[in-house]
Amino acid sequence: MNQVLRALFAPGFFASDPVHAALVVGAVVALVTGAVGVFTVIRGQAFAGHALGEVGSAGGSAAFLGGANPLWGFMGVAIVAAGLIELLGLHRPRARDVATGLVLGAGLGLAALFLYLDATSSSTTGVAVTILFGSLFAVSQQMLPSIVALSAVSLVVLAVCYRMLLLSSLSSDLAAARGVPVRALGIAYLVIMAVAVSLAAETIGAILATALVVGPPATALRLTKRPGGALVVAGLIGVAAVWLGIVLAYDSYYWPPAGHGWPVSFFVVALVFLFYLAAGAVTGMTQARRSRRSERAARRTASGCAEHPGDAA
């Protein structure tokens, strides 16, 4: 038993402070992105989610330039971008797509500028890499309370809006007829998503945040039919991916090339992707079996009722 544990967790894993922080932050963030992301997938807003992450990196790099923690700049810009997407996007899918693309394009331009200025003004190289690709082990301890608080607020807001959000995600016409303020709800949701994406960016980097926001929820929606269940399952899958990613990244210091850890973001993304593929394979098999069985059953009842006067003329 002991040997198995030692093989799984490299020496010093449980004693390391950065690892503790990473485990806590990773779990909290994965729970939030899992819950928020279920609606991202149902509403077909994966592109918007991804765009917020990348546009946010402009804010992150600007905050770095001003000496603030990137998370705040990140979140501020992401929320503004969310508002712009909603404002420009009208109600047509194609217009939404273009609006998201334009906001993303402009945001990337700004990111290019700020990252360039970061690089020229500070002596640290690789600011771009840190902001874009992140590192869970580098999350500063003093950000921990803020991250936990933001996560809690997002989850509470999501819980309050839950039913309205579900109804408007399934049919905005139906929701509007029931008196749900669909437009305001759409903006509110994008803001929550901006916060979730910012948190994810803090952990696995701006351009990989999408992995946590889209991957576990899409996997969960393949495994369970009930939206409420999907929120929980998505959170758990996210936590599993992040924790396993942390373990592997920690272990990888002993992998080739020697003395060089593999980035934790890579492991998280790869695990998320594998989970998604596995869920697809599992549901694909069970679905095929179920539909074959139900068709056979339906045929049997239909042929049994053949004498029933179905065709009466």
């Binding site: 592109f47 991804h50 690709f133 990989l208 991957g215 899409a218 790869a270 992707f273």
Partner: peptide, 10 residues
């Protein structure tokens, strides 16, 4: 699209 993208970036 999102997952293929993040895998390549990862």
């Amino acid at each position: 699209t999102a997952l293929a993208l993040v895998l390549m970036l990862g």
